[in-house]
Nucleic acid binder design. Sequence first.
RNA 1: CUCCCGUUCGUCUAGCCCGGUCUAGGACACCUGGUUUUCAUCCAGGCAACAGGGGUUCGAAUCCCCUACGGGAGGCCA
Length: 454
Amino acid sequence: MSNVRVRFAPSPTGFFHIGSARTALFNWLYARHTGGTFVLRIEDTDKERNTDEALKVLLDGMKWMGMDWDEGPDVGGPYGPYFQSQRQPIYDEYLKKLEDAGRTYEKDGAIWFKLEGERYTAYDDYLKAEIEKVKAEPVIIDDAVRGRVERAEEKDFVLVRKDGSPVFHFVNVVDDIAMGITHVIRGEDHLSNTSKHVELFKAFGVEPPKFAHIPLILKEEGSGKMSKRDKGALIEEYESRGFLAAAVRNYISLLGWNPKDEREKMDIGEIIELFDFPGINKGNSRFDEKKLSALNAEYLRELNIESFSFLARPLLNEAGVVNEEVDEDYLQAVLTLCQPKARSLDTLSELCGYFFLEDYSMDEKTGGKIAKKTDPKELLSEVLPILQSIEKFDAESLKTALETHAEDNNQKVFAYFPALRYATSGQGGGPDLLPMLAVMGRERVINRIQRFIG
RNA sequence: CUCCCGUUCGUCUAGCCCGGUCUAGGACACCUGGUUUUCAUCCAGGCAACAGGGGUUCGAAUCCCCUACGGGAGGCCA
């Protein structure tokens, strides 16, 4: 095991945001790539929002994506506790170090961090107030993604609030020191704050970890980064919509990282092997659900029919298309026809609902088109006796029988197809017609045709 | 208002560090054609980008500067 120690430090908010998921994923990938340790640390300082339910959403999301953690909730570890709410003694201890070093002072009931440098008073246009500023030495960050970044803090900042609770910047740095974190991989939104963090590391006399600030995920349309209200922003949404975890994970890993060749669809082992900082992009990337869907469809087609059915059944059930009584053999026969055309599991019910339900809707456009050219009722009356009397109701026999009939009537066999499809499914398109009829079975097909003829 | 980061087809990106092999490659989307009874599959083809301006150089997508645009941060939020 290498000495790399990375961490994902989410705040449980009740949902698992795609940006957080990717930060977690990149940390996890880096840990697995290097043989290091992946730490999960819960920043649960906001008592209002931090319910057990919120934590569960987060942990479930991590697990669904296939990420495991070497230290953290449920598994423990030598650097615990892994909940910030339980680490107060550690924060007290580290605060004392800063106090002893003369790097803190009290103001308005809060404890502030004191920057080093010449002090002056100036009007701050952002705070809209006259405040004390500091000419501090710029901090130099050697970022694994961005290279050298230089930035100077110019204002002291709060470490501990009036109510005694420590702020994010402080606990984050303390925990990273206490937990021996070697690489901090996080979103670019933290880059500007990194100068604060480095000031703290220096004040503690500790060498800062290696930083890697990854680009942000921008919303599909409009401006700004993905926010929880945007479509596709929540991991649990993909889970409930029947997206495959492997596909989502593959897609997200490609947002801001790539293997430098033309590979896109990669299994997780391959991604772990290839993942490293040089492959991470600097520019933000825009979320594209179409591309995710395309990748998901590729994964879907690879599934064997048993797995496909296993995943599809609950969603079809939820859509009211199948129930527990639907025979697994019949379900699999139907899905075998539909799988190659499926792009996601959640649209499957529209694709194949008519195999199960008698009140399938009739597509009027298709109906009109067919009626314009032929008389579908008449055509169906012609072939109905054949369907009733044919010995074996399979695709091959149907083909032979219908072709013979067509020839006898000086017709092309295809003349009957649109009407047959329309009467039995209400659709203009779908799987190959004859296998479709065979799967539906004689009884169902005949009933539907009789009902159609009226 | 200040600071930080970024900018290659509509989108994700390769190429950039180490200038010539780039008439800029791939994928998704889109369009056309093929296959198919049909279609949401499949196959083939096509459309489409170096943000702008200056400089360095024999030569710049690649190096430097400026501008524009995009993103982020500046909180007793995380």
